[in-house]
Simulated scan of single mutants.
Amino acid sequence: MIKKGLTLAIAALLMVSSSFAQKGKTVNFTGTVKFPDTQNKYQIYLGKYEGEGFNRAFKAIDSTKLDANNNFSFKVPAEKPDFYQVRVYYMDRIDFWADKDNIHVNVRGIDTAKRIVKNPPYIYMENASRDNEVINDVNLVSYLNYQQMIAVGQEQYRAGLSKDTLWINYVKDGFDRINKEREIRIKYLVNKYKDQPTVLYALNNLSPKRDQELIMSTLDYLTKKFPDLKQARDRKKEILDGIAQAEKIANGKKAPHFAYPDVNGKNWSPKDFKGKYLIIDFWASWCGPCRQEIPHLKEVYKKYKDQGLEILAVSVDAKEADWKKAMAEERMAWPQINAKESKPVMASYLFSGIPYLVVVDKEGNIIEKNVRGESLDKKLKEIFGK
């Protein structure tokens, strides 16, 4: 009896010791920068994303500078494994899973090109276990996809200059082809790494709408295998909340309410256009495709205005001056409002990219979402008959 009691006491002590051993646990993240910031204009940050959905944002928790050999290092909290991100200056961002790996990266640093082009490089994490290999592999797929997008864009441009209709028709669906290929590769990685908590990183690259079955089955598997993996539970809740919101804005449902001011301070909302068909155009001054769509919207407005069509332009510019400047340049003839705090309306309409156009009927019900160009023309033809 004494021996049994002593054995239990020792076991309890070992458990306590193990618990204390985890407290204050850290891993090292080190890096070497090829082109340092010699003017000390920028920092190197360690941080993580906090918040949910459209309120999710990067929050720095530490910062550092290079040593004499252009190296930097962070001690990263690893008591509770989680995703972190290191930001080197203004370009390089490295996501990683802090648990047991001491990661090292080599990064470019300051862009030395005379003309800076946004084309983030692929950054390989050395010393990565299977957890962080998930991230390495996903990032390689994303990097190659980005390079293919650049190549397709250049080919489409050259095909247009050539006036060769066979070539033009061949390359016009180039983006769709490479994006389907990317999706196949990501799904392969999800199946390959489904037993790793970091498969969450791969799931973030799939569409909750198109790939819902694969995403949810993987999350169910994760939560069963790792009951303490809060990130998986949170992701599942976020997706379920998104599905519920998608049902609220399905075609035929009421367009979610919002109200923002125009340049004179007057608030406008979809309710102000009851009895009219309405196009809600979410855009921004810095969005090239948004501004490319404006001449087309002017044609649409001219064609259908007398038949009861109105447009409400909702800028998501954070800087009011940029919005006003773009308005003066574009000279749009319909009401213009500025949603400086755009996250609530983006969450209610479930979009993250712009331009995003929503067509609403005379009763304020959604007819169609995410249309522009030919798809908008087709929908308006269905409504107005010409």
Rank of each mutant, 00 (worst) to 15 (best):
E329N: 13
Y356I: 06
E330Q: 13
D317I: 02
A326Q: 05
Q336P: 01
M346C: 10
D361F: 00
N365W: 03
V358S: 07
I337E: 05
E363Q: 10
M332F: 02
L350E: 15
V359N: 00
N365C: 01
E368N: 09
D377V: 00
S342M: 06
G364K: 00
A318Y: 12
S342G: 06
E368W: 01
K340L: 08
A318K: 15
G364Q: 00
E341L: 07
E329W: 07
D361K: 00
K362V: 04
F351Y: 15
V316T: 07
E368G: 03
K362T: 07
K362S: 01
I337V: 15
N365M: 05
E341S: 08
D317W: 05
N370M: 12
K325M: 12
D322G: 07
S375H: 11
L376V: 03
K369T: 12
D322E: 14
A328W: 07
K362G: 01
S342K: 10
S375A: 15
I366A: 05
S342N: 12
I366G: 03
R331S: 14
Y356A: 04
K340V: 14
A321E: 14
V358R: 05
A326S: 11
K319V: 08
D322N: 14
A318N: 13
E320D: 14
R372D: 11
Q336H: 12
I354A: 04
L350D: 15
K324V: 11
